[in-house]
């Protein structure tokens, strides 16, 4: 199973050189780049853990890659996502976001159905990995 969140999940996994081009694009737009990681990629899991603060005032994408390398060293077995914030009025949110690291094996999700009134069903999506304790999910 391949989680297809983010802007480039349908392309082959990005190389570091690929990532540099996209980060440089964001920096030249004046956006702050942020790294986050998680072992729970549920589509509604909004708040992944931040790897430090968003990086403001950078000129060159290599600075972001330094942090990404450091983040991978500690969290290489998890999902890592890179996003860029635009602070200009009328947007003030994320402008681009894509995955830059995946666990070696992606467990995927189970769809639970609970019968509701009439023919309705309540749906619940659960990551298979969540059955294992935090920190041991993709090992």
């Amino acid at each position: 199973m391949r989680v297809t969140q983010g802007c480039f999940s349908f392309l082959p996994d990005l190389t570091d050189d690929d990532i540099l081009t996209q980060v440089q694009y964001a920096l030249e737009k004046g956006w702050a780049v942020n790294l986050e990681f998680t072992d729970d990629p549920h589509p509604r899991n909004t708040y992944w853990e931040m790897w430090g603060l968003p990086m403001f005032d950078l000129h060159d994408a290599k600075g972001v890659l330094m942090e990404l390398e450091a983040c991978r060293k500690l969290h290489g077995d998890k999902y890592i996502r890179l996003s860029a914030f635009d602070s200009s009025h009328g947007w003030e949110s994320v402008r681009i976001s894509f995955l830059v690291n995946r666990p070696p094996h992606e467990d995927g999700f189970r769809l639970e159905r609970i019968a509701g009134p009439g023919r309705t069903q309540r749906y619940e999506i659960r990551g298979y990995g969540l059955d294992r304790p935090e920190g041991a999910r993709y090992r």
Partner: peptide, 22 residues
């Protein structure tokens, strides 16, 4: 309309689980 809504939402939920995307 109810038929459509029920089957469509089954499809949406299943696709979300298959991709991890909203």
């Amino acid at each position: 309309w109810r038929e459509r809504f029920l089957y469509c939402m089954e499809a949406v939920a299943k696709a979300e689980a298959a991709t991890g995307e909203i």
